[in-house]
């Protein structure tokens, strides 16, 4: 029976309690789930822009100790011998890491210079990865026997300082049980970062440019808007190679024409052919 009147006032506290509970629940939702909703972005997709090379170029790389199949050594022990291409992955990666390393390997084969101009160091940023995990990964990629590829691990704090200095970032995504991370390889020469290649794969042309830079040369020309006619040597960014262009022919043309014109005057002109008082 629905009672009204003073007796119904005794039911108000329950209604109000219910409303209060709804408001409290709503407030809880707002204050708890909204930040979580914003934080949702950092789980679902990369939270940072691709790193800009110019922010890191020529900066010193921290000389951290790494554990490899040769034991514990500082990174500088490697880059003092040869420049280093450094990349970071993790062994449980189900997405981009293996394809990335395969494309790096392919680009290295194409560009050349491995062992003579540089060596490659692959580190894991996953604190759970062990040296055995990295060696297994190397074996899966067929790189465990290659002396110019070094797979290793380092302490989490060293990895963090290395990542901060070289543009790597990584973030745990518990929904996928994977790390979201940057795909990049950096070139380190004598402890300084000189180039950075970002992207899910490593184009051979880009790597060729990086190798050139490690050799002390760099590509000085860039494409002007519109068609550029007649350079002496044309750089093709898609292949990373120089080729002779018509500009070189134009540079040789003046001398060639002078020789031909002289020959014409001295040998072919009728007046020259029948010389008077030829002496």
């Amino acid at each position: 029976m629905h009672k009204t009147g003073p007796q119904s006032r005794h039911r108000l506290p329950f209604r109000w309690s219910f409303r209060a509970a709804c408001v409290a629940f709503f407030a809880f939702s707002v204050f708890i789930f909204v930040p979580v909703a914003f934080a949702q972005d950092s789980f679902g997709q990369p939270s940072q822009e691709p790193p800009n090379e110019e922010r890191f170029v020529y900066k010193l790389t921290p000389d951290v100790p790494i554990t490899t199949s040769s034991g514990v050594q500082n990174l500088s022990a490697i880059w003092h011998e040869k420049p280093v291409l450094l990349t970071m992955i993790f062994s449980r990666c189900a997405r981009v890491c293996s394809p990335f390393l395969r494309s790096l390997n392919s680009a290295v084969s194409d560009a050349g210079g491995l062992g003579t101009d540089y060596r490659i160091v692959v580190l894991s940023f996953d604190p759970k990865d062990t040296l055995a995990d990295m060696q297994r990964l190397a074996s899966e990629l067929g790189l465990n026997a290659d002396p110019d590829w070094t797979f290793g691990v380092a302490s989490p704090s060293d990895i963090r300082s290395l990542a901060a200095a070289t543009g790597f970032w990584f973030q745990w995504d518990s929904s996928t049980q994977q790390f979201d991370h940057a795909s990049l390889v950096v070139a380190i020469d004598r402890g300084q970062l000189v180039r950075m290649l970002a992207g899910p794969s490593v184009p051979a042309a880009s790597l060729r440019e990086v190798v050139q830079e490690l050799r002390g040369k760099f590509v000085a020309s860039y494409a002007l808007a519109g068609q550029v006619a007649f350079r002496c040597f044309e750089y093709d960014p898609t292949s990373g190679r120089y080729s002779l262009d018509w500009g070189l022919a134009l540079m040789l043309l003046p001398g060639t024409c002078a020789i031909l014109a002289t020959a014409w005057v001295f040998f072919l002109l009728p007046a020259s052919r029948k010389k008077r008082n030829l002496i």
Binding site: S221, L224, G226, Q227, A229, F230, R231, C232, L250, P254
Partner: peptide, 20 residues
């Protein structure tokens, strides 16, 4: 050629100009 809209390599032009 440039007046007709084709960009020419400035370094080549410089080489040719100073050669002349």
């Amino acid at each position: 050629a440039r007046a007709l809209g084709v960009n020419v390599d400035p370094l080549l032009m410089k080489n040719l100009t100073f050669f002349f």
